[in-house]
Amino acid sequence: MTIKMVAVDMDGTFLNSQQDYDRKRFANIYQEMKEQGIRFVIASGNQYYQLKSFFPEIAKELSFVAENGAYVVSEEKEIFYGEIDPKTVVDVLTILEQFEDGHTILCGKNSAYVNEKEPAEFIQHGSKYYHRLKKVPDLLEIEEDIIFKFALSFPVQQVEIVLEQLHEALGDKLVPVSSGHGDIDLIISGIHKANGLMQLQELWGINAEELATFGDSGNDLEMLAHAGHSFAMGNAQPKVKEVAQKTISSNDEQGVLVTLEQLLQNN
């Protein structure tokens, strides 16, 4: 078995419930990965600027598949971005007005945006995942930015029903995917984490059999199905465990780090 590339989701996967990880243990693993020539990639629905903040010492040498694949940056160089057509942005915002219990963040290349009338609690929650988050009077009036995706939040118990309703309401405009904890992302069809990883694979000449991926939510399904070695967290959603080749211990049991140590020994 030869692994040349590892991609990890962050929330519920690499990060524990306190939104952190064993930094000393990972530093040793990362050093070993470098010595073996293995690329380490962060693949998350979150904003690039937020993801970088978790790796202050090494962010400049890492690769990020951010915004669920809509923004790919490697060693601070922009590799790829997807763009939602401005008319579609307007159409989708109009559709979302029908969903009374939902809250919306519009995710752009320069910043994320939230309506200033949203509850303060929601805005504060959003700022954890979007380090660049601007409050604006009206999401319909955002110009001068490239929009990647919509990040929606609903009561957890409504998510499955809302996903079905969004599929029906949106048609082929955008694809709704669950990203855990009551969050739903609306992404461009075909632009998901696996697509982002493929951009990097092409850049580095790495095939899917040499790729290991780790995830826990619906937005990880494509990259788990794509990789030669795929791991669902013990805390993962049932459908994620079905797609992944193996289920490992949970994010609070450092499942990713434990498994990486094993993989490095056998590589």
Score class of each variant (00 low, 15 high):
G102R: 09
G102M: 14
G102Q: 08
G102L: 11
G102F: 08
H103M: 15
H103I: 13
H103E: 15
T104K: 12
I105E: 06
I105P: 06
L106P: 02
L106I: 04
L106R: 10
C107W: 02
G108D: 01
G108L: 05
K109Q: 07
K109V: 02
S111Y: 04
S111C: 11
A112G: 10
Y113H: 07
Y113F: 11
Y113M: 09
V114T: 09
N115Q: 14
E116W: 06
E116D: 13
K117H: 12
K117A: 14
K117W: 08
E118V: 10
E118K: 15
E118C: 10
P119S: 11
P119R: 14
A120D: 15
E121P: 03
E121C: 08
F122H: 09
F122K: 12
I123Q: 13
I123P: 03
I123K: 15
I123F: 08
Q124S: 13
Q124W: 05
Q124L: 15
Q124C: 11
H125E: 12
H125G: 04
H125W: 13
G126I: 09
G126Q: 08
S127N: 10
K128W: 03
K128R: 11
Y129L: 10
Y129I: 03
Y130L: 03
Y130E: 01
H131T: 08
H131I: 02
H131A: 09
H131K: 13
H131Q: 06
H131Y: 04
R132W: 01
R132M: 01
R132I: 07
R132P: 00
L133T: 02
L133E: 07
L133V: 06
K134P: 06
K134Y: 00
K134R: 13
K135S: 10
K135I: 08
V136A: 08
V136R: 10
P137C: 04
P137W: 04
P137D: 08
D138A: 13
D138R: 13
D138Q: 11
L139K: 07
L139S: 02
L139P: 05
L140K: 15
L140A: 07
E141G: 06
E141W: 00
I142E: 03
E143S: 14
E144R: 10
E144F: 00
D145F: 05
D145N: 07
D145A: 01
I146A: 07
I146E: 00
I147L: 09
I147K: 01
I147S: 02
I147P: 00
I147R: 04
F148C: 05
K149L: 03
F150C: 04
F150P: 05
F150D: 01
A151M: 10
A151K: 03
A151P: 02
A151Q: 10
L152S: 03
S153R: 15
S153P: 00
S153Q: 15
S153K: 15
F154N: 09
P155G: 03
P155V: 10
V156E: 14
V156R: 14
V156M: 12
Q157S: 14
Q157T: 12
Q158K: 15
Q158W: 01
Q158M: 13
Q158H: 11
Q158Y: 03
V159G: 01
